[in-house]
């Protein structure tokens, strides 16, 4: 049964991928890329990777599509059609793909419990982590504790991306010009659309509430700081799509936003440093309290909060930067 579902989804993926290649309407391509991510998330669920599926759906089908569409609204919606397939590129891709397929023939088969992946480090995480860390979701244990340093790096990556986007898209401050721009009603806002407005009023609180649930329930079920951050950001983005960017910016002023972006990363690294003062190594949360699992709990709570804050504010800030840019 699993195989049938898996194969069907994979076939859909292949169809979408080919459609993306052939279409020249960039608007449709971006939306299809979102569909691609959503299908991928379904496959991840079938393959037991619920946390990853969650994230892929929120990021690939959500945030990334929004950013693509925002870019298209500032650039162009059609790509120049190409006359024939690019043979050189096709050869490179075929060669690379061929090499990879050649490499698969010595691979352990799909689902094989004897595969090296399931023999060495993996069983340790599965067998020991629930008692050692005291968290039922093993993905959270590995993410936040065993490989917490990777996750710190990941938070730094998203922070770097935010710095890069701000460097590129932040408007230069021109004092004299600022005052002369007359207060025009935000045309991009969709506040006049009654159905949208009413629906969004209903949905936004639910989205934010769900974000909080995902943030604090990540120890027990799928979820965690990253997913929560993205969902929270999605709520804010929905608000600004409906009510206009200016209104959203009034609610979350840029200074607060940028402060929180930095705060999240500092909270994570600070938690790591705090364990140094408790005679532990960097990021050794179990030194934070008398009892090891209690310390792990405190540590994981704090760093997940750091990740959540940084991710939510970075995504929001990126969206503001993208949509704050007017077509010239």
């Amino acid at each position: 049964m699993i195989h049938v579902v898996d194969m069907t989804l994979l076939a859909f993926l292949a169809i979408v991928a080919i459609a993306v290649t052939r279409m020249t309407n960039l608007f449709a391509t971006s939306v299809l890329t979102g569909v691609y991510s959503l299908l991928m998330a379904c496959i991840f669920t079938v393959l037991d990777a619920v946390d990853v599926a969650f994230t892929e759906a929120a990021v690939g089908a959500g945030i990334s599509t929004v950013l693509f569409l925002a870019t298209l609204s500032l650039t162009t919606q059609r790509e120049k059609p190409q006359r024939s397939p690019n043979w050189k590129a096709l050869c490179v891709a075929l060669l690379t793909g061929g090499a990879l397929v050649y490499g698969t023939f010595d691979m352990p088969h799909f689902g094989d419990p004897q595969a090296p992946v399931h023999q060495h480090v993996g069983p340790h995480y599965i067998g020991v982590s629930p008692t050692q860390i005291g968290v039922p979701n093993m993905v959270t244990s590995v993410l936040a504790s065993y490989r917490g340093y990777d996750t710190l790096g990941e938070t730094a990556v998203i922070f770097t991306a935010c710095m890069a986007v701000l460097l590129l898209l932040q408007h230069e401050k021109r004092r004299d010009e600022q005052s002369t721009v007359e207060e025009k009603p935000d045309k991009e806002a969709m506040a006049h659309a009654m159905i949208l407005r009413v629906q969004s009023k209903f949905f936004i609180p639910l989205i934010l509430l769900f974000g909080l649930y995902v943030q604090f329930h990540g120890d027990f079920g799928p979820g965690g700081g990253f997913q929560a951050g993205v969902i929270f950001a999605a709520g804010i983005i929905l608000y600004s799509l409906v009510n206009g960017l200016d209104k959203a910016r009034q609610i979350i002023p840029p200074n607060v936003l940028h402060g929180l972006v930095a705060f999240g990363l500092l909270l994570y690294a600070g938690t790591g440093l705090a364990s140094l003062f408790m005679d532990g190594n960097f990021l050794q949360y179990r030194a934070l309290a008398e009892e090891a699992t209690h310390g792990e709990h405190i540590g994981i709570l704090l760093i997940e909060l750091g990740v959540g804050i940084t991710v939510a504010t970075v995504m929001t800030s990126m969206f503001f930067s993208f949509s704050g840019r007017r077509r010239s």
Partner: peptide
């Protein structure tokens, strides 16, 4: 299933 690839890919998605 092995949680480690899941963790790696969470990072890679970001």
């Amino acid at each position: 299933s092995n949680p480690l690839p899941h963790v790696l890919i969470l990072t890679a998605i970001v």
